[in-house]
Design a protein around this nucleic acid. Structure first.
Lengths: 339, 339
DNA sequence: AGCCCGCGTGAAAACGTTTACGTTGGCGCC
DNA sequence: GGCGCCAACGTAAACGTTTTCACGCGGGCT
């Protein structure tokens, strides 16, 4: 038997479809008595409004789309978690679409989401302003995550890469380490460049006379391992190393272990992200934790706001908080761990 | 300017809307010439069919819903990844809905997905056969993941908990350890009970004279830690410990370390899941890896099949493969690591 | 030559909902 | 008591698509 429609409910409750719609959607204009009769009828028939029909007439899908490059690893797991939680809180559905390497794929994904979503959450390296303008109807609300595109045209939400890096480098310096080297992230990457900027800025401010040491990396464990060996081979070893993300720090730690260099006695080490593994390597990794789930939540709330009140003011620079999580790899004083 | 509709395209191409629909949906009955004209017009107007209208008339959403208990951690990250990949391959959208602790929440989630999806992928402890029958229109295709509900009524897809446990226990025994203890998972849990069943079966078969040792756990790191101490306090320490999941194994490892017990010299240890952390603890954890992404892929493909060909035969017992990943905690011979 | 078939096309119904607009009845007010 | 107004409710249009049906027409068959 096919699902009950609004007409069935109307017939059952001996009213018109209009009254059913009004009673069920709460928009007044219905006697308490009839409303009760309608609700009873709906309950009896197990009536569930047909979402598509409602979308069609309302032009609202109550769904937001999340466009991600790939959801491999803990970062995206946490991100989606935060987004999902917030979506549920806002009464919105979440349509995810990930794993598009190329711009063409991303374009196809965007296009296929047309009309299924009220707004779009986009986190992708490939996506820049021109791409967006080419592939998006400008009516569709969009919030960009961790994106280099700026300007008042789009809403952007970034992790505090810069602030976190500054805080960590300052922490290392204040722990007594004179020189801090950086293992950088991949060249084109926005997060990577922001973290490097933070490193340079903090060094310039708090250790203006120290030499800057930057070795290349690409956010992978292997690149961290290589970078670790490269640092050890240098004439003047740094006293501390700040890896632009945790995976590289883990690789670097392995390199130090293999070389018989003690951490943190011989050299201090810190990462960025606070992935779960950071807690379990030995010694446990000092890192900067960014509240990824909060990040996702903020992004969705912002998008929901834009969807609800279109044509509002230009983007505010909201960022989720971060914390320096001091564990065993950085030496110096060790405040309590904030779990 | 509002988005172009099929009528606009029809006017632009000087044909009727019916022909536009036919031309664009590929279902013959249109001259090559007119088809070309229609495609050109559609291109010119940037026409994108309105998804809701299509759903309404077609009764197909080209979307499948994934109902998960919570997407915290690597397991769900991988699972969604596999599902998403397969969904893209099948040309389906993915609507996720997670984080429903209670049955009431799950029911609400299911209800709100009504009409938005062609099928449902459900992974939830709370969901049993009666719940499903109460909350689902029986027309909606459903595939249950890792669920205890059996019978021909529903399609079920399970991880090979039993097989993995059997294989691991056998491996430990063949590595020369006489006695193997089990750190069990939470009592009501389906995965946990299946793994315990595998443990008992393998012990009965390969070490019928050995004593069975089972200590309680609940899949958390803390419970593993407690279990580790409990095992050490026993009069007769087992030679090997099989933890029903990796997190407990990690906790147990910490307990052994704290107690000065060497792994694997004094006691061997193995886990289940192969979470990323397993590789990074020292010594690296031997465990059984289940291909979670494959699991998600299989589940979605199965669901897509059911959606496409409804009323087919009862569920086949498809399960994703697993591998014993031998690392450093189990002693004995060490084959190559298969990464 | 007449007939029928099939192909290309158009008109219109249908999907289930919301909502603008009538229509009714009851009630207060003069 | 009549007039008008408001609340409650019904009617019907509209959303954008697919799909069924009918129509015209050209050509191959008998």
């Amino acid at each position: 038997m096919a699902a009950a429609t609004i007409k069935d409910v109307a017939r059952e409750a001996r009213v018109s479809v209009a009254s059913v719609s009004r009673a069920l959607n709460g928009g007044g204009g219905v006697t308490a008595a009839t409303s009760a009769r309608i609700h009873a009828a709906a309950e009896r028939l197990q009536y569930i409004p047909h979402a598509a029909a409602r979308m069609l007439i309302t032009r609202r899908t109550h769904t937001i789309g999340a466009l991600l490059p790939d959801l491999y690893g803990e970062f995206f797991s946490e991100l989606i978690r935060g987004i999902d939680l917030a979506a549920r809180a806002c009464g919105l559905h979440l349509l995810v679409s990930s794993s598009h390497g190329g711009a063409a794929e991303a374009a196809a994904a965007v296009r296929s989401m047309q009309g299924r979503v009220d707004g779009l959450l986009i986190l992708s390296e490939r996506v820049d302003a021109t791409f967006l303008r080419a592939n998006l109807p400008k009516a569709l609300p969009v919030v960009l995550l961790n994106s280099a595109v700026s300007g008042p045209a789009f809403h952007v939400l970034n992790i505090d890469n810069h602030g976190g890096a500054v805080a960590m480098v300052r922490h290392l310096l204040q722990a007594g380490h004179r020189s801090v080297a950086l293992i950088a992230g991949p060249p084109g990457n926005f997060d990577a460049s922001e973290r490097e900027r933070g490193y340079r800025e903090a060094m310039a401010k708090h250790a203006p006379r120290a030499a800057l040491t930057v070795v290349a990396g690409d956010f992978t464990e292997e690149s961290g391992y290589r970078a670790g060996h490269e640092l050890l081979a240098r004439a003047r070893r740094p006293r501390a190393v700040f890896a632009a993300n945790d995976m590289m720090a883990v690789g670097c730690l392995a390199a130090f272990k293999d070389a018989g260099v003690r951490v943190p006695e011989d050299i201090a080490l810190a990462g960025f992200d606070d992935i779960p593994i950071a807690r379990y390597v030995t010694p446990a990794l000092t890192t900067v934790r960014v509240r990824i789930a909060d990040f996702g939540r903020l992004a969705l709330e912002r998008l929901a706001d834009v969807v609800e009140h279109p044509g509002q003011e230009s983007p505010s620079a909201d960022t989720p908080g971060f914390e320096i999580v001091v564990r065993d790899t950085c030496g110096g004083t060790r405040p309590e761990e904030n779990s």
